[in-house]
Simulated scan of single mutants.
Amino acid sequence: MTVHTAQTAGAERADVYGGLPWIEDAGLIAPQDARRLSKLFLDRLRTADEGTPEHQYARNTLIEMNLSLVRFAAGRFRNRGSGDMEDIVQVGTIGLIKAIDRFDLSREVEFTSFAMPYIVGEIKRFFRDTTWSVHVPRRLQELRVDLAKAKETLAAGLDRDPTVRELAEHLGLDEEEISEGIVAANGYTAGSLDVPADATAPVGRATGGRTYADVLGESDPAMETVENLHTLAPLLGELEPRERRIIDMRFGQEMTQAQIGEELGISQMHVSRLLSRILHKLRDGMLTQD
């Protein structure tokens, strides 16, 4: 990693970057060096006109130099169960940029101490907004946090879970709103279907334990047949006796059209036309059912 003054790189670069150290790869700077150089770059960032090459160079270098802060903060959220690590770093970088834009050297506080809450705050906001399994209004998302804190506080004093009324009194809200918040909180995360159905059982079929996926109900194809027969029954009752007999021979006794024709003393072609008309009548009746 090479750091040298802009003047040594030529008068043109010195004019453009206002004498700031020219850093070939700011991402390779050690954290201790980044803290020292950040003060210089932050000071120049405040005096440079926004939009100028000097301002852009100072700001971009500050971001690259302090990405180690973002990676450190992102590492604390590595096992949160959602969000790709690259996405978390990108979100944390937004917090870093906000800190750079808002930092004031006159506060006499280390930039790292100032920036970390911004970085962590952006990452937490990312998880808050992306770990809801269903769409929930923002006010209910925020209420979930208040409810969690209130439950913990009240449970410690009551030695039991607080009631809806107690939560409402503690938070100064209506019981209806508390109930709505509790229901909405159920959409915060989606449980995996691979977790054991019995908390004491081992995970997965291979170990003999049943997961939720093993015991989860699924659609039964026969149910549609039952529903269709239930709808069809009154329609069959409305058919004429000969029409019902033809339907019974064709679908109940599974007779061919030729056999039905012999039984009724009519041609196979006539049977075909009758079946077509009867089935059309039944189909229309089923489509018009509520």
Rank of each mutant, 00 (worst) to 15 (best):
Y118H: 14
V164D: 13
S219K: 07
E122Q: 07
N60R: 14
H230F: 11
A6Y: 05
V16W: 00
E175C: 04
V70G: 02
D161S: 14
I97C: 12
L264Q: 01
Q257I: 08
S179M: 15
H4V: 13
D84M: 06
R80F: 11
Q7N: 07
H270T: 15
A58C: 12
V120W: 03
S267W: 03
F77N: 05
I29R: 03
L193C: 10
A6H: 04
G285R: 04
G81S: 09
D290E: 14
L167R: 03
E152N: 10
Q268C: 00
A34N: 02
I182M: 14
E262Y: 03
I178W: 00
E238Q: 15
T112F: 05
E86H: 06
R128P: 01
W132S: 06
E243H: 07
F103S: 07
I63N: 01
S179P: 01
G51A: 10
I247A: 06
G187D: 15
S68A: 12
T189V: 15
H4R: 14
K149V: 14
D220M: 01
E86T: 11
T112V: 11
Q259K: 11
V134C: 10
S82A: 15
S38A: 15
S276Y: 08
Q32D: 13
V271Q: 01
A197G: 08
L20H: 03
Q289A: 15
F111D: 06
A14K: 08
F114D: 10
G83V: 02
F41D: 03
A185W: 02
G209P: 01
V145R: 06
Q289F: 04
E110K: 13
A74Y: 02
R102Y: 04
G83D: 05
L147W: 02
R160L: 12
G157W: 03
P221I: 11
G51K: 03
E166P: 00
D161V: 11
I23W: 01
T200L: 13
L229E: 06
Q7K: 11
G172V: 05
T130W: 01
I247K: 00
F77Q: 04
E12C: 05
S276N: 13
V109S: 13
Q253I: 05
G237E: 14
G95E: 06
T8Y: 02
P162Y: 12
D33K: 06
A201D: 07
S276F: 11
A74L: 05
P31A: 11
R242G: 00
D194C: 07
Y118K: 06
H230P: 00
G252Q: 09
G121H: 03
D159A: 15
T189S: 12
R273G: 09
R35M: 09
L173Y: 06
I266Q: 04
T5D: 11
I29D: 02
E238C: 04
G191F: 07
D33Y: 00
S179D: 14
L236P: 01
G75T: 12
A213P: 00
R44V: 09
V183R: 12
P202N: 13
M1I: 06
N79A: 14
A34H: 04
A156H: 10
L69Q: 05
P53M: 11
